[in-house]
Amino acid sequence: MDLARDIALGALGVVAVVTGALVFRVDSMARATYLLAASFVAVGASVVLLHLDYVGVVVVLMMLMEMAVMGVYMVMFMGMNPALMPMSMVHSGRRAVIAAVTCFVLLAVGILLVPWPTRTEVPTSALPSSSEATTYALGDALMGDHMLVMMVVSQVMLATIVAGIVIAQARGRYERLGDDLKGGSR
């Protein structure tokens, strides 16, 4: 069982990284969007394999919806058929490659050098046979000891909704006509 899970985790990791890298290699934004969605699905499945069922499923659902929004957005604003229009829109590519490789090398060295702690035993709440218990534990924590997390996140979400509408909406009549609504367009 563990071996099968390890193989699946490795394969999903390769899929996630390869599709993620291809996002910036393909020549149309629609393909890039689908590839990014594939990368997120692979990571979501990996998270499920790591026994975090709820978070993994949320990642997959949320990201699929987000990619759908991105597709609509591109058709709305990019002024082109994103599936058919080849493009190469990169600036300072060389410096970006150097920064990304440096970042990866630093992270990898840190990962391999740090003596990570290991747990001594698998807790019953996290055993594969009781993944429901893991989800229950998360709900219990969010509605109990960690309720502050949920309260802060909900406030941030509300602020995001309001701010998103304020930023994105068209200019209102007070902005167009002035405070007395008599002025011309400013």
Binding site: G20, F24, M89, A96, F104, L107, I111
Partner: peptide, 29 residues
């Protein structure tokens, strides 16, 4: 699979994302 292996995959994802965020010209990208 060990913690280090999964973290290496995560670091690769992060680095690829960093490349994209620095190099792409289109806001959505």
């Amino acid at each position: 699979m060990t913690l280090e292996a999964v973290l290496i995959v995560a670091a690769a994802l992060f680095s690829v994302g960093l490349y994209g965020a620095l190099s792409q010209q289109v806001v959505v990208m």
